[in-house]
């Protein structure tokens, strides 16, 4: 396997616009840098119809390979698969629709210097409508409230990072949006650069209620994965302890009224309420314990740390890997 400089992964899974023209522009931009590069097109079956035109581009001399999945696995999986097949030292993910001017992608490579492991794009200045901007702003506001590190544009699919980054994180579902957060958690240096948004990216984006709900759970997932990855009991236990605390105080109140003020306890609906809270508290805690059991039994396979290098030694391979 010959090693080259850059592998550009283009997941064709969700949205496609002007793809042939765009890929050629990417190709010219990369060629101008003088680096060796290849394209990997990862196509979901729903977008099969673009295969011939991509094949035509490859025949015309754009170095690249086409991978067609047999079912829809989503963008995150496509990127993970692309990373495994990539020969490049640097991996770029490029979108099959225009988010920034294609010539600007070389700026990412310029910024990926020694101290930086990943470069992502903040589309700024933005040219799209107030509605798009407002929903994006709210999404990031909530995310940044909890995140350890603040980024402004998770929606931009154009990223560049060093190859070993993908071996330390695991992508599935909709996690591709949060590669920067996951990378930061594993100790990689992520840099966000401002690049102007392309006018072609400016159409109004109104999604289905389902999509918004999905985004909300993406947020919860990423907060859980980055903050409580190794300690589920602290996540569930905090909620459980609050519920348990309130219910115990409430039950104490009912008990005191019953004993000292002769107020009947058995016919009070309040008793049911506090019993339910008690049950909720114990259940949350118990779920946390199940989480801890999963972490404990799999701890030897997933290391709790990442090593940059070892002076005077070599890293021992992972158990069971």
């Amino acid at each position: 396997m010959s090693s080259i400089d850059v592998t550009a992964i283009v997941p064709i899974t969700e949205r496609v616009e002007h793809v042939d023209q765009l890929i050629l522009s990417y190709h010219h931009a990369l060629a101008a840098t003088g680096k060796s590069y290849e394209f990997l097109f990862l196509i979901s079956p729903a977008w099969d119809r673009f295969k011939p035109s991509l094949q035509a581009i490859i025949d015309e001399g754009v170095p690249g390979k086409i991978v067609t999945f047999s079912r829809h696995f989503g963008e995150a999986t496509a990127i993970q698969v692309g990373g495994e097949m990539a020969n490049g030292e640097i991996i770029m993910t490029l979108t099959p629709y225009e988010q920034i001017a294609p010539e600007a992608i070389t700026q990412l490579l310029d910024n990926l210097t020694d101290g930086t492991d990943m470069v992502i794009v903040n589309r700024s200045p933005r040219v799209d409508g107030a509605f798009n901007q407002a929903q994006a702003r709210w999404f990031h506001r909530i995310l940044n409230l909890f995140a350890e590190v603040k980024f402004n544009d998770m929606g931009c699919g154009i990223k560049a990072f060093k190859r070993d980054l993908l071996t330390e994180i695991r992508l599935y579902g909709d996690l591709h949006r949060f590669i920067p957060q996951l990378a930061h958690q594993q100790g990689f240096k992520v840099k966000e650069i401002d690049i102007a948004q392309s006018p072609r990216d400016a159409h109004r984006r109104v999604y289905s209620a389902n999509t918004y709900l999905g985004r909300l759970f993406d947020l919860l997932t990423i907060i859980f994965l980055t903050k409580f990855n190794q300690k589920p009991l602290r996540f569930f236990g905090a909620g459980g302890a609050i519920a348990l605390g309130i219910s115990l105080l409430g039950l104490l109140y009912i008990f005191i009224e019953r004993v000292f003020f002769d107020v009947g306890a058995a016919d009070r609906p309040l008793l049911v309420l506090f019993s339910l809270l008690l049950v909720l508290g114990v259940q949350l805690g118990a779920i946390g314990l199940v989480g801890e059991t999963i972490i404990f039994t799999h701890a030897k396979n997933s290391r709790p740390y990442t090593i940059r290098k070892i002076v005077n030694g070599e890293e021992t391979p992972k158990d069971g890997a």
Binding site: G187, Y305, R308, E315, T316
Partner: peptide, 21 residues
């Protein structure tokens, strides 16, 4: 030998890395 972590992980992971290596 000096094992260099990518970030701060805490005392136990640091010991785990030493023990693993």
């Amino acid at each position: 030998k000096v094992v260099d972590f990518r970030r701060n992980y805490g005392q136990t992971p640091a010991m785990a890395a030493g023990i693993d290596n």
